[in-house]
Structure formats: structure tokens, C-alpha cells
């Protein structure tokens, strides 16, 4: 059963990594508009006038 010490200690960096990824996603606005991107991907976007921002 001593293996549980090792496993739990391994899980710590994983939790930190996931928490960090979540915080980054919220702060960088990944959750701001959940509707547009899923449609946008299907629409033609090769407009020469369109600039990436």
C-alpha cells in the first residue's frame, strides 16, 4: 500500500498543471464566447481583406 504515497505525490503536479491551464483559459477569454467559434470553423474565411487580430 505504500505505493499510494508515490501516486498521490505524482498527482500533485498534475493538479497544479490542470489548475494552471484552467486559470489561464479563463483569464485569456477562452470562455467569453462559446457560440461563435464552433460555427466559425465551418465558414469560409479566406478573405484577403480580413486581418487576423
Amino acid at each position: 500500500m505504500e505505493i499510494i504515497y508515490l501516486l498521490i505525490i505524482i498527482s500533485v503536479p498534475l493538479i497544479i498543471l490542470i489548475a494552471w491551464a484552467f486559470i489561464w483559459a479563463v483569464k485569456s477569454g477562452q470562455f467569453d464566447d462559446l457560440e461563435k467559434p464552433r460555427h466559425q470553423i465551418l465558414m469560409d474565411d479566406d478573405d484577403p481583406g480580413k486581418k487576423s487580430d
Binding site: 460555427h39 466559425q40 478573405d47 484577403p48 481583406g49 480580413k50 486581418k51
Partner: peptide, 11 residues
Amino acid sequence: IWLLERRLGAM
């Protein structure tokens, strides 16, 4: 939104 972004982006 596609329509507006495309049209305005090209101006």
C-alpha cells in the same frame, strides 16, 4: 457575424 466581420474587415 460572419457577414459583418467579413464586410467590415474588408473596409
